[in-house]
């Protein structure tokens, strides 16, 4: 089965599900960061030389050097693996054994941008990310890092808010976790499905509801309500 999800065993022995972020979303994140740095350069270029003359120009050049090399490193280390661009796209860098990215890994992956950048505009980086099964560019290969999607923030009380209300009903048969999830997903996504398709799906699960058509849909909603803890 092809999937972007990977199970990583972290040093503590726990298995962690991560969803690898690919080339396209990382390209968007890089562009956002590029625009941010570009805006900073523009402000500095217009202000520093005017304020301080040749000394200001020197400061400006040092600022470019520092920002180009340390902008990603500092954000990755202090902002849980995400530069502002990555944050907007909902992705972050982690080590490929699941632990947060540290100084050495972040410095390695970002210093090696010069290799990824060759021969023009990240040509090798793009080629590497197309070939590697975990979308690693050369810097990621050297540093042992991957870029993953952050899990969606917990919605708290809003959880299952779009579940259609129905008086809760315990399922007649034991359901596995995956099956419980499917019943809940059916109830939550029913509004996105066509009415015919809703009936069709409900009829597939007829042995569970002991009913067909509209009654089956209603009973599945009732079971979903029971499963999310409404009693």
């Amino acid at each position: 089965m092809l999937d972007t999800r990977r199970a990583i065993e972290v040093p503590e022995g726990v298995t962690l599900d991560v969803r690898i972020a690919g080339l396209v979303v990382r390209f968007f994140a890089w562009n956002i960061d590029f625009l941010i740095r570009g805006a900073i350069y523009m402000v500095l270029a217009m202000s520093l030389p005017n304020l301080m003359g040749r000394f200001g120009l020197g400061i400006f050049l040092i600022a470019i050097f520092m920002l180009e090399w340390f902008y990603p490193v500092l954000f990755e280390v202090f902002n849980r693996g995400a530069t502002p661009g990555k944050r907007v796209m909902g992705i972050a860098v982690v080590q490929d054994n699941g632990v947060p990215v540290g100084w050495s890994a972040s410095v390695t992956r970002n210093l090696l941008r010069f290799a990824d950048f060759l021969p023009v505009f990240y040509g090798f980086g793009i080629a590497s990310m197309l070939i590697n099964r975990d979308f690693k560019r050369l810097g990621d290969l050297a540093a042992g890092t991957i870029v993953v999607y952050r899990s969606a923030p917990d919605k708290g009380s809003e959880l299952h808010a779009d579940l259609p209300l129905e008086s809760p009903l315990p399922p007649l048969y034991p359901l596995t976790l995956e099956q419980q999830r499917a019943v809940i997903a059916f109830a939550e996504r029913a509004s996105m499905l066509t009415p015919e398709r809703t009936l069709e799906l409900a009829n597939i699960a007829a042995p569970l509801t002991q009913a067909t058509n509209d009654t089956a849909v209603k009973r599945l909603f009732a079971i979903a309500n029971w499963l999310v803890g409404r009693r």
Partner: peptide, 11 residues
Amino acid sequence: GWDIELVFHDI
């Protein structure tokens, strides 16, 4: 709801 269909067949 393809993903749901698969699991419903399982159930």
